[in-house]
Design a protein around this nucleic acid. Structure first.
Lengths: 210, 210
DNA sequence: TAGATTGTTAATCGATTAACAATC
DNA sequence: TAGATTGTTAATCGATTAACAATC
């Protein structure tokens, strides 16, 4: 809605707010102040108010924020109130894990289908999601517009598969392949999940004495 | 070694340098300049030189950096040149995926064992890693000191399991449970992998017109 | 030597924190 | 009304970028 620039640092905090507010909501809390939110999340109250004011004020002086309505606002800003189409490409171990355990709906997506090249997998279903032949994805994409592709193929197929998905008009790629890719010029967003980077950071931290 | 404060922003870039340098090494490149490194990684040359100078200078005026020796230095700084003990707790789908596909050694760890409570899994091996009875982990820890625990248990068991691991003296927890935890006061580092946060950021990005 | 590129200092830019008037 | 807490402006802090002397 508001088209002014939002810093990536603010954007990366939005899911934290969202998660925290959902928990407050679940535990029946009705109102929350910037200072309580800050303490829970390890931010400062100032920062919390600054962040929210990027999108307009959601609170009330002397009262704070209504948990439900703030959660809704944040959900709208992130876009998780919508339900977009996702497909998963590559049903290996990680693909399996995501199909079994990951709640796409909480993130604003419906996982419509999975794709693989393995004869043994094609035609089967995991957790209600059908596994289709990767060879038919172009055909599939004519019927159903794919908003986001979850890329869990082996790294040697990452580049070509991503290229193919971009051709199909996906808006975003959730990239688990550890292969860096950039389709900025095509307007396709890539969000990387680099397990190794994460573990290396932990390695660094435990390597310092403290 | 140098005990001065290093900004978390610098630390989060270290694995990127490491990855990039390993690729350069693999493709046989001998020397690299801050500007080439910067271009590859999407940083600026200034930033690259500033980052390295946090740890002392590794380059040579007029030449740049020797790829092999810089990669080694970065590896030492991160601590991936060491080989520390890791165990995996909770052999569900995600645990399976990590056991099958993830290269712990590249991150400075040897995965010594996995633990679960399932009778069907205990005693079996995945990818050369034995699955042991979670009931025996205290005993196990007397023999082998656990540096890092990979926490892939269902979220309802996250808190108690983490607590138990901290008691056993782990130095770090690689946390896949989506349950926030803090053992700062015990000197235990926690590195979180939040799939949902990552996908929500992608959701935000594709929700903006661009 | 001349050209290249570092390491470092200074300048700029942006993000966080503090402060406070507005107001529920 | 009095107390609480926001939204916003100003101050501070830290990170990035620019510039350049040092030197390989």
């Amino acid at each position: 809605m508001s088209e002014r620039y939002i810093s990536p640092l603010v954007i990366r905090r939005l899911p934290k707010y969202h998660r925290c507010l959902k928990e407050l909501e679940r535990s029946g809390v009705e109102r929350v102040s910037s200072s309580v939110l800050a303490e829970t999340l390890g931010f400062t109250a100032s920062q919390v108010r600054q962040d929210f004011s990027c999108f307009g004020g959601f609170g009330q002086q002397g009262y704070g924020y209504n948990v439900v309505s703030l959660r809704q606002k944040i959900a709208e800003i992130i876009g998780v109130d919508k339900c977009r189409n996702a497909v998963l490409i590559g049903v290996g171990n990680l693909g399996h894990a995501l199909l079994h355990n990951f709640d796409f709906q909480k993130c604003g997506f419906e996982l419509r289908a999975a794709f693989d090249v393995s004869e043994a997998l094609i035609g089967t279903s995991i957790n209600g999601v059908e596994i289709l032949d990767m060879g038919n994805i172009e055909e599939y994409a004519k019927e159903t517009s794919i908003d986001v592709a979850v890329l869990t193929v082996p790294r040697q197929f990452a580049k070509e598969t991503a290229q193919r998905l971009v051709e199909l008009g996906v808006r975003g790629i959730w990239n688990f392949t550890n292969v860096d890719m950039n389709f900025e010029e095509k307007g396709v967003k890539v969000e990387n999940v680099h397990f190794a980077d994460s573990l290396k950071i932990l390695c660094y931290e435990i390597s310092r004495e403290n």
